[in-house]
């Protein structure tokens, strides 16, 4: 009886997964992202390239209103800066990305890379002296530049379709990063008026033309192919990071917490047995 109830409770949890798995479009391709496993981290090189793709391609239409430039350089961000001591020379060097061991995190305020990224963006702001709208170079505390001042302007520039905000897009879509990656690779080339056929999009036709093409973004690393597939994968990495920037910290902490709890459960069980020994129940 008890076992049956326990099984029933387990089944109740399993049901939830089933209940939300409705989709009409083709199922996204399952790509082995580095963050898939319970202990998997982000491939930060891919997240960096993905930011480049976003910045040079997607950002023309899609805002990410919940992200600021400083997020890129905070701990767990793709451009986080670390101060590392060289073992042999003892010299301090700066390095992007968390080193294997050691290294102290440099506050994002002192991160020249992020500052440079922010300054490249032209931000619309109120001039402090004239009170009029003016353009100025971005600061790290600025939100990512919004391509359109409001939704009406965004629709007007995109034939009535609204380019969605991408801040939490992988969390907001069934299939997450797999869906984003598949969607970007799923164009058949068929056009119907202002709609483009895409086999991964619910309904099959979407208003966004295929945004990526061979070589549209020039990567610094010559080893990395400049193909649609690579771009799609990288940008999926970046958007996943943007949706869940604390994932690495979360998983790291989770492992420690679970390990601690298992030990504690063991100790508690022994204590329980000890208390109850000699008492029948």
């Amino acid at each position: 009886m008890l076992r049956a109830l326990t099984a029933a409770a387990a089944a109740a949890i399993a049901i939830v997964g089933v209940a939300f798995a409705a989709a009409e479009a083709e199922h996204p391709q399952d790509y082995p992202f580095s963050f898939d496993s319970p202990v998997g981290n982000y491939d930060m090189a891919a997240v960096q390239r993905g930011f480049q793709v976003y910045n040079q391609v997607c950002a023309a239409c899609h805002a990410m209103e919940h992200l600021s430039y400083r997020h890129l350089g905070e701990e767990g961000g793709p451009f986080a800066l670390y101060r590392v001591r060289d073992h042999e020379t003892g010299e301090m060097t700066m390095q992007i990305g968390k080193p294997e061991h050691g290294g102290t995190f440099v506050d994002v305020v002192d991160n020249p890379y992020v500052r440079a990224i922010a300054e490249e963006a032209i931000i619309s702001d109120i001039d402090p002296n004239s009170g009029q709208l003016t353009d100025r170079p971005g600061r790290i505390s600025d939100r990512f530049r919004q391509p359109f001042p409001n939704e009406i302007a965004a629709r007007a520039s995109n034939g009535g379709a609204y380019p969605v905000d991408l801040s939490v897009i992988t969390a907001a879509r069934h299939g997450g990063a797999d869906y984003i990656r598949s969607l970007l690779m799923g164009y058949s080339g068929e056009v119907n008026g202002t709609l483009y056929e895409n086999r991964y999009f619910p309904g099959g036709w979407l208003a966004m033309p295929a945004p990526l093409g061979e070589g549209v973004v020039a990567y610094n690393d010559p080893e990395v192919p400049q193909t649609v597939e690579q771009y799609a994968t990288d940008v999926a990495y970046f958007l996943q990071w943007a949706s869940d920037p604390h994932m690495e910290e979360r998983k790291r902490m989770g492992i420690v917490v679970l390990a601690f709890l298992v030990v504690l459960a063991g100790l508690m069980y022994l204590a329980y047995k000890q208390v109850w020994r000699g008492e029948s129940h």
Partner: peptide, 17 residues
């Protein structure tokens, strides 16, 4: 001794948690 050890260990671990 064994009993006390278990109780102290469990108690200390709980406190840490």
């Amino acid at each position: 001794t064994r009993r006390d050890f278990i109780f102290i260990a469990a108690g200390a671990a709980s406190a840490v948690g």
